[in-house]
């Protein structure tokens, strides 16, 4: 109940914000009858209406994970964001091994197996991507390439 109400309210607010920012869209002198604003207005209005509907008629709550699992998910997101930033400057092998190992550990908490799968995936995928598919991946940190 509560989850759906919160979600509905968030959707409504975002939809209104969306409509508000759509009013800022510049129109050109080559205007067609509809213009660039109308469709965003329609989409925003429908979303806002459905958001209100969800606040009024929510479904039963889903089973949210316990706090610890939520923490693990948050860590996973942080790690993936870090990976996104690290991939270019640090090359493929090192960030991939670390990220894969952490994700693996989070799915099944066994340090040894996780470390092994991290290293294995990193090296194995690099070989596949680089030599079988011919993608231009950089293996090591940019600094080491000189």
């Amino acid at each position: 109940m509560v989850s759906d109400r919160i979600f509905g309210a968030v959707v409504t607010l975002l939809a209104l914000a969306y409509i508000a920012s759509a009013t800022q869209i510049q129109t050109s002198f080559l205007a067609d009858p509809v213009g660039p604003r109308t469709f965003p207005y329609i989409v925003g209005s429908v979303a806002a209406f459905c958001g209100i509907l969800m606040v009024l008629r929510p479904d039963a709550d889903p089973e949210w994970p316990v706090l610890r699992t939520m923490g693990a998910l948050f860590v996973a997101v942080v790690v993936l964001v870090g990976y996104a930033y690290a991939l270019k400057p640090l090359g493929f092998l090192l960030p991939t091994a670390i990220t894969a190992a952490i994700l693996s550990y989070q799915i099944s908490p066994r340090p040894g197996a996780a470390a092994l799968s991290g290293v294995g995936l990193s090296v194995g995928l690099f070989i596949i991507f680089k030599f079988a598919l011919g993608l231009g991946l950089v293996a090591l940190p940019a600094v080491l390439h000189g």
């Binding site: 990220t99 894969a100 799968s117 991290g118 995936l121 995928l125």
Partner: peptide, 16 residues
């Protein structure tokens, strides 16, 4: 193939 190898693998393939 256990999920703790598969899913990180899927993630890495997605990123690349």
């Amino acid at each position: 193939v256990p999920p703790w190898v598969l899913l990180p693998g899927v993630t890495m393939i997605s990123f690349v």
